[in-house]
Write a protein that binds this DNA or RNA. Sequence first.
DNA 1: TATGAATGAGCTTTCATTCAT
DNA 2: GATGAATGAAAGCTCATTCAT
Lengths: 218, 218, 218, 218
Amino acid sequence: MTDDVDRWLSELIRLYEDDERLTDKQIKILQAAVEIFAEKGYASTSTSEIAHRAGVAEGTIFRHYATKKDLLFSIVTPVMSKLVAPFVFRDFNKVLHLEYSTYEEFVRAVIRNRIDFAQRYWPVLKVMVREISFQPQLQAQFKVEVGTQVAQRIRRVIQYFQRQGEIVEFPPESVMRLTASVVLGYLLTRFLWMSEKPWDDHKDVEEMVRFILHGLTP
Amino acid sequence: MTDDVDRWLSELIRLYEDDERLTDKQIKILQAAVEIFAEKGYASTSTSEIAHRAGVAEGTIFRHYATKKDLLFSIVTPVMSKLVAPFVFRDFNKVLHLEYSTYEEFVRAVIRNRIDFAQRYWPVLKVMVREISFQPQLQAQFKVEVGTQVAQRIRRVIQYFQRQGEIVEFPPESVMRLTASVVLGYLLTRFLWMSEKPWDDHKDVEEMVRFILHGLTP
Amino acid sequence: MTDDVDRWLSELIRLYEDDERLTDKQIKILQAAVEIFAEKGYASTSTSEIAHRAGVAEGTIFRHYATKKDLLFSIVTPVMSKLVAPFVFRDFNKVLHLEYSTYEEFVRAVIRNRIDFAQRYWPVLKVMVREISFQPQLQAQFKVEVGTQVAQRIRRVIQYFQRQGEIVEFPPESVMRLTASVVLGYLLTRFLWMSEKPWDDHKDVEEMVRFILHGLTP
Amino acid sequence: MTDDVDRWLSELIRLYEDDERLTDKQIKILQAAVEIFAEKGYASTSTSEIAHRAGVAEGTIFRHYATKKDLLFSIVTPVMSKLVAPFVFRDFNKVLHLEYSTYEEFVRAVIRNRIDFAQRYWPVLKVMVREISFQPQLQAQFKVEVGTQVAQRIRRVIQYFQRQGEIVEFPPESVMRLTASVVLGYLLTRFLWMSEKPWDDHKDVEEMVRFILHGLTP
DNA sequence: TATGAATGAGCTTTCATTCAT
DNA sequence: GATGAATGAAAGCTCATTCAT
């Protein structure tokens, strides 16, 4: 767990580097907070426990984060943005055409990329997945970022491959949902429910790709 | 929401009917608790709020449920048992052979049944899905009931159809996971994330059946 | 413990026999109450625990005893009266002259009688001793019964033996206090602090008598 | 009452001075707690009442004392140690031989010292005496400190004077018990039961010394 | 008479937040 | 910037007492 948290932290630190650098204490607070949020949930975590694990005074937390909720958002928001980053740059379509000539290649790339992402950010994602349904503010942010930004672009990709006759003429939303379900189901099984089992990425990815492709063959 | 809660409640009342009948107040407490737990989560719900919504004194809650956690378990546990009920009766295999001669029929039946179940018990399921990762006791119960009871039986079904050459020779765990992912993804989308949209069950079921069947064709 | 309680109970039952007989439940309540009061103290005992140990409903307690305090008083008061009984009958002095011609005989008789009494009523005495300092009502009752009734009579006895030249000319209050201290110290050591040790009544009584007599010799 | 509490407090403050100084609020809490515990007993005292009398917020109590019981122990424990202090220093026997050549001198010194001690620490002693029979933790501590430390040393003193032929050949436990009973009886009468009466220390001490000495003469 | 569900005030304890140092 | 003592509202829970059955 701590290793995972560290990986995310080093990225987060770099993220803030440009404008306001994170203090040493701030880093320790974020680290402690993610660890405990991931373990017992936001609502069941006390600021005093975070302070203790971070090795700082309780007051120090509130010097940097006005409220406990602000601390949660400071952790989840940047990762939520990262989550959609691969899909939102302007030339997404061009890149797509150049790099992936078939839906199979596209699906394989997306799956690999998402597994990689989940692995890198797992503790924060766990917090995000569980808190999003309790925090309207996170829900709103998610809807804007994913719903409008990502969904639209992917819908166009799907429609393109449908026009090519590569995939079945289900409503694009269905195609999206079916594909995403398979990937999400894998990620939850692998990282949340059976994280102790040994997993063979390559084999699993190929299984999923075959399943999705066959499933969507016209 | 209230309608859904009512549907679950009337079943719960019947469940208890045999040994210790539920008091009028007890019913109101369960009703209020599920509603608020589903809305803001177990940890963020106060017993005083439950009491207020139920129209009883706070002490009344603790007369029937020794702790707040006991109240949660009294709500979730019976539904968790119901959840696995269709798979655990002794003659599961016989029934299977008689009723479903193909994996397609089996999958279609399961999907329909699960949608029906989710619809009937949605509010409690929502609470269960969100709390299971915080409550080791629920996790343990789930592992016993689902892991040992259900998974084994379904694995045998899958192996049977694999021997028939109907479905691809993936590891049974993969087949299970892929199938379940599709159904779970649908249920979450439909009841949790986009419950306001209009949904066409029949069409959706056929889409899923086609997707899974094609996906698993050898 | 239970045996001791039983001994006291049978007397209490007889006490009430004349006017209002104690119901079966009432007896069980008194029994349970004394046991738990003696164990954990009045303030730390809940009426629900008494009801449970007595095997009756909580409401039943309040049918017989208007408040928890009333229950305490119903237990302690009769024993407090018994405590002073040997000293308060009208012809105390006559009896004294007939039966005890020396202070030694008087002291020996009193000590034996008090040990006997303490043994018989120990659980209730324990409750009484500990609660008397918290309950003004018990204090008042004690002051009236002991202070005015008993102290006066004993003072006269002491003054009589002082006039006989048998005991030293300390203030009667001092003689009383010194004598009582020795007996009380023995009873507390024997029943409260070291109840598990084996005790030899006869030897101990003679030791005390000798100590007191020598101590008070002019 | 308040004066007595103050006397004890100033000693307690000095006791803590070396390692962790007591906060101003902490002192007020201890002061208020002793006063109310002494008045109505530990179990019947609410932390809110303590907070109110101390003029602090209820939360402040729990910042310094994890539980209400911890608060009780913080008050009683140091006094219990003080209680045995005069008997436990290493050279107790030497000092004894130098200072007290007769049992009479020894008894007189002990009585004076104990009266002095009781006077100084009365409110806390009252709390201690009443709570010790409800709190196994206090009982255990008392048994260790008094039972093993003090009783042994005093037994040796008694045996020494018995060898000198100064006091009667009762079992040392009896001598101890008889002597202690007289002192304890005096202290309880003087401070607990009849604290309002005027008392003449010097006369009372000489009375007790004479009583004990005569009582124990061989 | 006896019950036990119901009450609501009060209990101990927790907690996010403030603020003087 | 950092601290941690202090706060007081609110948490989960207990309890003596009431009352309809």
